[in-house]
């Protein structure tokens, strides 16, 4: 019988099937302290004026946490949305475009976020 299994047989495994699975858990684990720290930073800025908020984010320690969070979150978001696309989008062309849009969105978020934090931390 001609099933997809017949095509796959004898070709061996791709050897990286669990790569995203593991990376999703590592980024998730790292996100826990980063997100909790982020919530405390945000909570301390409720009602704060521009100068207060700017000075707090410019603190090197806080800027480092936020850059780590932005980078880590974008990786986690990319893999997470990729599994959603894999599960629900079965049309090949739409799937490829969705992967592309997902990559562009998460990279754009990372670049915009990190660039902004650097401008705040290093600028005058």
């Amino acid at each position: 019988m001609r099933t997809p299994l017949a095509k796959a047989r004898g070709r061996g495994s791709a050897k990286e099937g669990t790569g995203h699975f593991i990376q999703q858990r590592i980024t998730a684990f790292a996100n826990i302290p980063l997100v909790l720290a982020f919530l405390l930073i945000l909570a301390s800025l409720v009602g704060a004026d521009y100068q207060t908020a700017h000075d707090r984010i410019a603190n090197p320690f806080i800027a480092a946490i936020l850059i780590g969070l932005t980078f880590n979150l974008s990786l986690h978001m990319r893999i997470g949305m990729e599994s959603v696309i894999e599960d629900y989008i079965h049309h090949e062309g739409v799937k490829v475009l969705s992967y592309l849009a997902n990559t562009l969105f998460t990279y754009a978020m990372a670049i915009l976020g990190i660039l902004s934090i650097l401008i705040i931390a290093l600028g005058g």
Binding site: Y50, A53, H54, I57, L66, L73, M77, G80, M81, V84, M109, L112, G113, L115, S116, I117, I119, I120, G123
Partner: peptide, 22 residues
């Protein structure tokens, strides 16, 4: 998860605004 993905725009919007100025 999908909500947080889209909602990341709020965080990025806020931090970009802070970088742009008062």
């Amino acid at each position: 998860g999908i909500g947080l993905y889209i909602g990341s725009l709020f965080f990025i919007g806020w931090i970009v605004a802070l970088a742009l100025g008062p």
